[in-house]
């Protein structure tokens, strides 16, 4: 299968995952609990994986997932499609909350270095038995995109995304000039955007 063809197929599969989510959000806004369960079905896997990748603690990650979905339920009125997709809204909330907890824990344990380093196992990938196959395809595509980045760029992105570190902190951690970290982060995310654009451009919402 050619790469471009494959991207078209992937775009339509993300559309399957993210489409009609606007309708679900409307029902959530109206207080429909079944709609909340549907939101869970669509995004729980990714959101829990994200929280776990940051926190490395299943119970804490589950708490974050539930807290964010509850918040989405309470604050559905505040969701504004003009500012990004539902996927962005939920992942930003999960990441923020998980990073808040991570920072609290780091302060408590005073082991800043250890916590973000623990994410440094390369890009792991493991699906679960119940996963929808289109989601699996999407994941493979994103994993491939990340793996194709120069490792230094990927490291900068992952230390920021999963470790919650600022550019200065990353520069200090890696003993690199700040400018180098800035360049790696910019080039890396721009590349990801180009590779992933056909996917997220296909999203409804």
């Amino acid at each position: 299968m050619s790469d471009s063809w494959r991207r078209v197929a992937l775009a339509s599969s993300l559309e399957d995952v993210d489409s009609t989510v606007g309708e679900i959000i409307s029902r959530v806004q109206a207080g429909d609990q079944a709609a909340l369960a549907e939101l869970y079905d669509r995004y729980a896997d990714t959101l829990l994986a994200l929280a776990y990748r940051i926190l490395r603690d299943r119970a804490e990650a589950e708490d974050v997932l539930l807290e964010v979905l509850e918040r989405a339920w309470r604050e559905a009125d505040r969701f504004d499609p003009e500012r990004g997709s539902v996927r962005v809204w939920l992942t930003v909330m999960v990441r923020s909350r998980a990073l808040d907890l991570l920072r609290v824990r780091r302060r408590r344990e005073r082991v800043a270095a250890e916590a973000a380093r623990s994410g440094d196992e390369g890009v792991g990938f493991r699906g679960t038995a119940g996963d929808a196959s289109e989601l699996e395809d999407l994941r493979r595509h994103v994993v491939t995109a990340l793996q194709e980045l120069p490792p230094a760029q990927r490291e900068a992105i992952e230390l920021a995304y999963y470790g919650g570190l600022s550019q200065s902190e990353i520069a200090a951690r890696l003993s690199l000039p700040l400018g180098t970290v800035k360049t790696r982060m910019r080039d890396g995310l721009q590349k990801l955007r180009v590779v992933l654009r056909p996917i997220h451009a296909g999203q409804a919402l």
């Binding site: 959101l47 990748r53 997709s85 992942t91 792991g124 493991r126 999407l138 994993v143 990801l192």
Partner: peptide, 12 residues
Amino acid sequence: EAAALIPLSAPS
């Protein structure tokens, strides 16, 4: 939108 796809690569 691109960044929101990053966690798709995190292990389930």
